[in-house]
Simulated scan of single mutants.
Amino acid sequence: MQTVRIGFMPLIDCAVIAVACERGLAERRGFRLVPSREPSWAAIRDHVAFGMLEAAHMLAPMPAAMTLGLGGPQIPMIAPLSLGRGGNAITVSEPLYAAMEAVDPAALTGPRALSARALARLVAERRGAARMRFAAVFPFSCHYYELRLWLAAGGVNPDRDVELVVIPPPRMVENLASGLVDGFCVGEPWNQHAVTQGLGRIVATKADIAPEAPEKVLGLRRLWSLENADIVTRLTEALVEAAAWADSHPAAVADLLAKEAWVGVPASLLLPCLEGTPRFGPQASLTPFPGYQGFCDGPTNVPRQEQVEWLIGQMILCGQCRDTAGETIRRIFTPV
């Protein structure tokens, strides 16, 4: 029985991989799926690039960056499947939230996409002081693009007014607690973790900033996928089945992801995200938010064309690639 090693990060949207592994969906299709919990997105990129993993849970821009040779070796990739939608949020520290509320309370009660207007007021007041520091999970991530879009919508220049750094998702909360960052954009459950510990508040979500944006995908080396076309077909079938099951069994998924081998946080932290009732602040009630986190995206989970176009636009806007790279990127996100 052929083995496929698949890397993942401890996030709620690794659920599709977790369900496929724990429910034996690969074995039913004649191959073995072996999960590998990874410490960072850079580790996933490198382990896929150098053949230590055959497949991986990836940020949607990662296969494009790898194919173009951005930030690492140039490795042609494909991303035939979406593994998750939603789940990202921007969380700021409690001291920063209090300062934003003091200078512009209306900005924090209006549309969340414009809540950075309060931050812009602070930046103006603190001109000449040390810049505030915000983290995203990887330079080639929708988190990075969404954080920049949120800042810019509020009148904050993301290149001049603040400092942007990269921190792996599981390390976000400890860096917020220590004061090394003032806020971050990360996938769940790490926003909920900061909120329930009284360390921060969610000021905007992916749905507020870029509802059309993709999120996580299945990343495969193009050469490996051509040499193992039958396995790739069976792998995608298993993951599509897992996505449908995960969307319809939120409590079971929460219990599964609570295991140390997967995400390793209490199920009580995971379930509100899966049920669409996240908490935005330490004293806030659970907020009805249908579709906050999900796994199915159409019957085949193939990344949609509008998602790919959004991604290309953001990579160009951030100066990560030229507009001539568009056609190369489009070919990455095609069904097998």
Rank of each mutant, 00 (worst) to 15 (best):
G7T: 03
L11A: 09
I17T: 11
R23W: 11
V34H: 06
S36T: 06
W41D: 00
A42D: 10
F50D: 03
L53A: 08
L53I: 04
A55H: 13
L59G: 01
P61L: 09
M77T: 00
L81R: 12
S93T: 14
E94W: 10
T109R: 12
A118E: 01
L119Y: 13
G128K: 12
A129Y: 05
M132S: 15
M132R: 15
H143T: 12
L149F: 04
G154P: 00
N157G: 07
I167D: 06
P169V: 14
A177C: 08
L180R: 15
V181S: 01
V181D: 10
V186P: 06
E188C: 13
A213Q: 04
P214R: 12
K216H: 13
R222D: 15
L223W: 02
W224Q: 02
E227A: 11
T233I: 09
R234E: 10
L239M: 13
E241T: 06
E241Y: 08
D247W: 02
A254G: 10
L257F: 12
K259D: 09
E260C: 08
A261C: 00
V263A: 00
V265D: 10
L270H: 05
P282D: 07
L286P: 08
P303R: 13
Q307R: 14
G313T: 03
I316M: 05
Q320H: 13
C321W: 08
R322A: 10
T324L: 06
V336Q: 04
